[in-house]
């Protein structure tokens, strides 16, 4: 298989790989493809450089990040004989939506727009059907805590859990399980009153202040959203803002760069 064939097969099957290319200096154009288990195809032209780049590529892949890096001809740090662009092809982030309610379909659609792989999970079999959520990648008919017991360890900083049931019977096990994962965004829907009651129940269930602070509740930005579609936009906007660390305000009222600079090393 050529490098292109291996790379395109990996991308099509969503197998995580990193792809390194010499973009400047010795060996211009040389390539090294690195699989998540560290196996490789191709070479940058020097075994020591390959070894260092494999190590860096695995780090970039784990972070889902792509960057240009400089090395000496044999992979030395702080030298600039060779510039290597390491591109990470990480699988798409995941969103798990607990609760097959009115707002779920709109949120699932919006999340797909942002590139999430979406799972809709509800313990109630009549609601959690693939017919009702054709836009979801997966519909799970399962209790939230059971579902997270299965997939929680796969969740990372790029992923999201949205709890939309606003029924304590489902919300509490969903949130108490989700805070034990490394999920980047955890939001729970409900009125102010629901939120207060739920916070009390979560405390009773043993959640610490730090764990409670992770829960975006009530879910979403204060946009004045009413319809399921508007609420979905407010939730998605909140997910983006949390990831980028921005405080959402009109750009008109702020200064500074609009796009966060992505600097190479």
């Amino acid at each position: 298989m050529t490098l292109y064939e291996t790379l395109s097969a990996a991308l099509r099957t969503q197998r995580p790989v990193a792809f390194a290319t010499v973009t400047d200096g010795i060996g211009l154009g040389a390539k090294l493809l690195v699989e998540a288990d560290g196996t490789t195809q191709g070479s940058l032209g020097n075994v020591d450089l390959d070894r260092v780049v494999v190590r860096d590529a695995l780090g970039e892949l784990a972070a889902g990040r792509s960057s240009a890096r400089h090395y000496g001809a044999h992979g030395e740090a702080r030298e600039r004989d060779v510039t290597v662009f390491i591109e990470s092809f990480a699988p798409p982030p995941r969103m798990i939506i607990f609760g097959a309610v009115d707002f779920t379909a709109a949120l699932a659609r919006s999340a797909k727009l942002l590139g999430f792989r979406v799972t809709v999970c509800d313990a109630r079999a009549v609601f959690a059907t693939a017919q009702r959520f054709p836009m979801a990648d997966e519909v799970a008919n399962e209790w939230p805590d059971k579902h997270l017991e299965r997939v929680g360890s796969l969740l990372g900083p790029r992923d999201a859990v949205c709890v939309l049931t606003h029924d304590a019977k489902f919300d509490v096990p969903a949130i108490t399980s989700a805070v034990k994962t490394s999920v980047g965004y955890l939001g729970a829907m409900g009125s102010r009153k629901t939120h207060d009651k739920r916070t009390e129940r979560l405390r009773d269930a043993g959640l610490t202040d730090a764990e409670l602070a992770r829960v975006m509740s009530p879910i979403g930005l204060d946009l004045g959203a009413r319809t399921p579609e508007e609420v979905a936009v407010s939730v998605c906007a909140e997910i983006i803002a949390l990831r980028t660390g921005r405080v959402p305000r009109p750009l008109r009222d702020t200064d500074g760069p609009i796009h966060e600079p992505v600097s190479g090393r």
Partner: peptide, 14 residues
């Protein structure tokens, strides 16, 4: 392929 950006730019490396 975008390999590096500086300042404000609409697309990221990759």
């Amino acid at each position: 392929r975008v390999v590096q950006t500086e300042g404000s730019s609409p697309r990221e490396p990759g």
